[in-house]
C-alpha cells in the first residue's frame, strides 16, 4: 500500500508536543516533510520519524520583535512551503497551532492539497488569534478544535477528537 506524504508543522514547546504525538500516530501510514522554526526540532531531536525539513523565521510572539517580524515570517513561510509542496508533492498539509502554519496551509490550499489546521489543546473556550486568522483567510479546508466547547465559537470549526 502506498504511503501518504504529509507536510506538517513541528515547533518546540506545547505545539511541538501535540505535533509529535500526531506525527507518531500517523507514521504507520505516512511519511513527512517538516516545517519548523528557530526553537523547532529536527526530526532526530523530536523523536519523530526522519524526513526532509525546512526552517522558517519566528513570529513576534516568540521573538518580542515588531509586527514586521511576523510579516516577514509569514512571507518566508508561504514561499518556502510553496516551493517544498511543488518539489515533493505531499498529499496533505497539516498545521498544528503554530502561527506560521496558516501561511503554509495557504500555500497548500492554492496548490490543491488537503489542508488541516489543528487548534492547540490549550484552547478550551476562547479561540487563538491563529484560528481566527486561519478562518478569515480560509487557509484550511478543515479547522479542527480539540474541545467541543470551542466548536461553536468560530463558524466552520470541527471537533473530531484530540491529538492526545
Amino acid at each position: 500500500m502506498k504511503r501518504n506524504l504529509i507536510l506538517i508543522s513541528l515547533s518546540s514547546g506545547g505545539f511541538g508536543f501535540q505535533a509529535t504525538n500526531l506525527i507518531n500516530h500517523l507514521s504507520k501510514d505516512c511519511d513527512f516533510i517538516y516545517m519548523t522554526n528557530r526553537f523547532g526540532r529536527s526530526p532526530e531531536e523530536a523523536r519523530v520519524p526522519s524526513g526532509v525539513y525546512f526552517r522558517v523565521p519566528d513570529f513576534q510572539t516568540v521573538t518580542s520583535g515588531s509586527p514586521l517580524t511576523s510579516l516577514w515570517s509569514a512571507i518566508v513561510t508561504f514561499f518556502k512551503s510553496f516551493y517544498y509542496i511543488l518539489r515533493y508533492r505531499p498529499k496533505a498539509v497539516i498545521g498544528v497551532a503554530m502561527p506560521q502554519s496558516i501561511f503554509m496551509l495557504m500555500a497548500g490550499r492554492i496548490l490543491g492539497k488537503k489542508t488541516f489546521y489543528i487548534e492547540s489543546i490549550t484552547r478550551t473556550h476562547t479561540p487563538s488569534k491563529s484560528l481566527k486568522i486561519c478562518s478569515r483567510l480560509h487557509a484550511a479546508r478543515h479547522m479542527l478544535v480539540q474541545w467541543k466547547s470551542l466548536q461553536d465559537t468560530i463558524p466552520g470549526t470541527e471537533f473530531r477528537g484530540r491529538v492526545i
Binding site: 501518504n4 504529509i6 504525538n21 500526531l22 500516530h25 500517523l26 501510514d29 505516512c30 498529499k91 496533505a92 497539516i94 488537503k114 488541516f116 489543528i118 478543515h142 479542527l144 480539540q146 473530531r160 477528537g161 484530540r162 491529538v163 492526545i164
Partner: peptide
C-alpha cells in the same frame, strides 16, 4: 490520538 485516526480516514 482520536484526531489522528480521523485525519487518516480523510486524507
Amino acid at each position: 490520538c482520536t484526531l489522528g485516526d480521523w485525519i487518516l480516514e480523510n486524507i
